[in-house]
Structures are given as C-alpha cells and as structure tokens.
C-alpha cells in the first residue's frame, strides 16, 4: 500500500530514461530469442525477434507498403469516426431530450455497446459483402453507441448552477445549449470522443483482418499467410504505436488544453 491515498502519479521520467528502458527490453527480448533457439525451445522462425522485426520493417517499407497501409487504415478510421460522431451526437441528444425514449432505449444501447465489435463482422459481410462499406459499418457500430452514451451523460451531468445563472441572464433555447451547456459539457464530451475513437480503432482492425482491402489489418493477415511471425509482430507493434499516437497526439492534447484552461489539470 502506498503511504498516501490517493497515491500521486509519479513524475514523468526523462526521455532518455524511456529510451534506455525500452532498449534494454528489446535487448532482453533478443537474448531470450537466441537462448530459446539454442536450447531448442522453439524453431528460429516460430518466435518473433527484434532483428527479424527490423528486417520486416525494412522490407515492408520498400515500395511504401507499410506507410500506405497506415494511411489507408487511418483514413478509414477517421471517416468511420466522423460518421460515428454524427450518429452518436444525434442519438445522444435524442436520449437527452426524450426522457421516455431514453428510459426504454438506453438499456438496449448499453447492451449493444458491450458487444465486442468483431461480432458485427459477419453481419456486415452479409449486408455489404467483403468491402469498404462493411469495414466502415463495423467501425461505426463499434464507436457510435459509446459516443451517444457519452454525449447524453456528458450533457446531463453538468453543474446546474451554470444553467441557472445563464437563464436569469436571459439565455434560453439554442443559446443556452451552445453557449452554456455545450461548453460546460466539453470536458466530458472530449473524454467520450476519445473513448469512442479507441473503440473505433479496435473495431477497424476487426474489420480489416477479414477483408482484402489495403490496411494494417490486412497486412497483419498477410504476415499470417506467409507464416512470417516477425511481420505479424511488426504490424501489431505498428497498430499499437498508431493508436497511441492518435490518442496522445490528438485527443489527449486537446483534452489537456481544455482542462488546463479551466484550471482542472
């Protein structure tokens, strides 16, 4: 048990600390691989190793294959996310406005939201075939409902005193919504969008591994078809890195700026 509760998050380590740690980790991984091979725990081609992953990176980078896959996946994710935002916002606002609808529909939405997005894939294939629309459909289904719920609860759970104050100053209708309720809910909305994005990104990969459209998911499955464990590992790492980059570079940084402006971070 930490002495103080809640325990304070530790100070961020310097960049060279991180560099050192991960170099060490990769070094250990390489050692483990070589040890395993020499003791015949596994065949050289059955266990991924850093050098092999590096080789895969080089070969996939030739002809811009990897970069193209990343860009295709990202643009698909962005499009799906935008659609999900649109649908989520409309659905969320409906839930907020129509109490009765909300009461009956919310359990269903919450239920559907627990469905792992890969479960939408067969459905999408039956509807659209093995194509772009099917993937997009899976992404939208994976994130729209969580966005809707975040919009609803984010707008509902603002401090009512802001609304009271604004109303006594003559605000009502759309002015109240856009000048008060929306900005008051913004931190909640942003964290909802961030979560929606991460659901969407996962859903995208579920869709892409099934399809033959260019993208990271497809590159991953190509690695499997070639029985190239290093390529599989490489693409997994790339999927993680791209996901983290968007989460930190886009969502986290916007969120932080909004919170800091309000003295909340």
């Amino acid at each position: 048990m930490p002495k103080k509760w809640p325990a304070r998050p530790g100070k961020k380590a310097p960049w060279w600390g991180y560099l050192f740690f991960y170099m060490l980790l990769i070094g250990l991984w390489q050692l483990l691989y070589m040890l395993g091979v020499s003791l015949e725990w596994w065949k050289p081609y059955a266990f991924p190793n850093p050098a092999g992953v590096w080789q895969s990176l080089l070969s996939l980078s030739r002809d811009w294959n990897l970069l193209r896959a990343i860009l295709y996946s990202l643009s698909r994710a962005a499009l799906g996310f935008l659609l999900a935002c649109l649908i989520g916002a409309v659905l969320g606002l409906l839930l907020l406005k129509l109490q009765l609808l909300s009461r009956y529909l919310k359990p269903l939405i919450m239920g559907v939201q627990t469905l792992p997005s890969i479960c939408w894939v067969p459905f999408a294939i039956l509807w659209f075939g093995l194509n772009q629309q099917a993937i997009l459909f899976v992404v939208v289904m994976g994130s729209a409902f969580s966005i809707a719920l975040a919009v609803e609860s984010g707008m509902r759970n603002i401090d009512p005193i802001y609304v009271k104050a604004a109303r006594t100053m003559g605000a009502s209708g759309s002015k109240l919504i856009f000048r008060v309720i929306f900005p008051a809910a913004l931190p909640n909305l942003l964290s909802g969008l961030r979560q929606g994005w991460s659901f969407g990104w996962r859903a995208l990969m579920s869709g892409e591994v099934m399809s033959s459209a260019i993208g990271l998911g497809h590159t991953l499955m190509m690695g499997r078809d070639l029985a190239d464990i290093n390529q599989v590992m490489l693409v997994m790492i790339v999927i993680i890195l791209v996901g983290v980059a968007i989460d930190k570079g886009v969502f986290s940084s916007i969120e932080e700026r909004v919170l800091r402006q309000r003295g909340l971070a």
């Binding site: 802001y162 100053m169 003295g263």
Partner: peptide, 12 residues
C-alpha cells in the same frame, strides 16, 4: 438577474 453563493462564473 441572480447571484449565487458560488460565483457560477463560466470556467471556459
């Protein structure tokens, strides 16, 4: 117009 115990100023 109403004023409250907490300022109800908008933090944004």
């Amino acid at each position: 117009v109403m004023m409250f115990q907490e300022s109800a100023l908008f933090p944004w």
